[in-house]
Design a protein around this nucleic acid. Structure first.
Lengths: 148, 148
DNA sequence: CCGTATCCATTCCGATACTG
DNA sequence: CAGTATCGGAATGGATACGG
């Protein structure tokens, strides 16, 4: 972040990276999607120092990815919950996971698998499809300018 | 990057972020997916200084995301092409774009749309599906440990 | 338990100058 | 055109100490 270029960035990818394009933010979202809510849980899971974590959480709340809510267990503290906007990052997380699983392990494959909770079967790979359902490879897409 | 934690990171998301989890790398991949090949093209598109760009390109080549090839136009220089592994980042880019389009624009919507080159129609939203084709929301998935 | 404040080291980034 | 070398400033990260 804080590079010069993103001020008027028209590209949605650049805008997205401006919000979650740093190391910790996506890992926080990853944990939040798994149900992590409390400051100390994030701290323990990520192994990040308190000040960094506090800053990231504050930024994510500011961007509307997380929101603060009263603790569900009756304790005096608060919890960080994903907003609907934050849950919109689910495909990003899944895409990263699938890329990692597929291309970043050597002889020993990844030890965890994402499965459908109901059936216990592994989920499908994310695929981009045309409006008629046809599978699209990168070269089969293009960007067009939308008219006002 | 270069945080301490990723050395033995078992999480594929963390591993993926270690490879492309910085500001420029994904933007380089974005451009490469659009057909950008030459150093100067990346430089112009990204508005990044040469030394940073050179470093990122070198890292991406080192990770097997990009590869160097002789220039297709007969010039004396080389081009940076996506490897199959690099093209595996396509879903990540699309997911980021769709998140950005959906949640990061205010009154004025995003001016560009990704379409099927053949039909000219917008692509579908990425969806996670179970092995039986059922649509899966975040809470309907879980991670399990794979047995050796 | 949930942070904030501080200090310090490292890294990153941008601009520029320089080379083949 | 395609980089490399260098520099300074800014941001990031880790550790720790402190306070509500």
């Amino acid at each position: 972040m804080r590079r010069k270029s993103l001020k008027g960035a028209a590209c949605p990818i650049a805008k997205a990276l401006d919000v979650i394009g740093d190391w910790w933010s996506l890992l926080i979202v990853r944990d939040a999607l798994r149900g992590t809510r409390r400051f100390s849980e994030f701290e323990k899971s990520l192994g990040v120092s308190k000040n960094i974590l506090a800053g990231r959480l504050r930024t994510l709340v500011g961007h509307g990815i997380l929101e603060l809510a009263p603790a569900s267990d009756g304790s005096a503290y608060q919890e960080y919950l994903l907003t609907p906007k934050g849950r919109g990052l689910f495909p990003v997380i899944v895409a990263l996971r699938q890329f990692g699983e597929e291309s970043l392990y050597g002889s020993e494959p990844c030890r965890t698998v994402m499965v459908d909770r109901k059936s216990g079967q592994p989920v499908r790979k994310l695929e981009l499809r045309a409006s008629n359902g046809r599978l699209l490879k990168p070269g089969e897409t293009m960007l067009i300018r939308r008219e006002a």
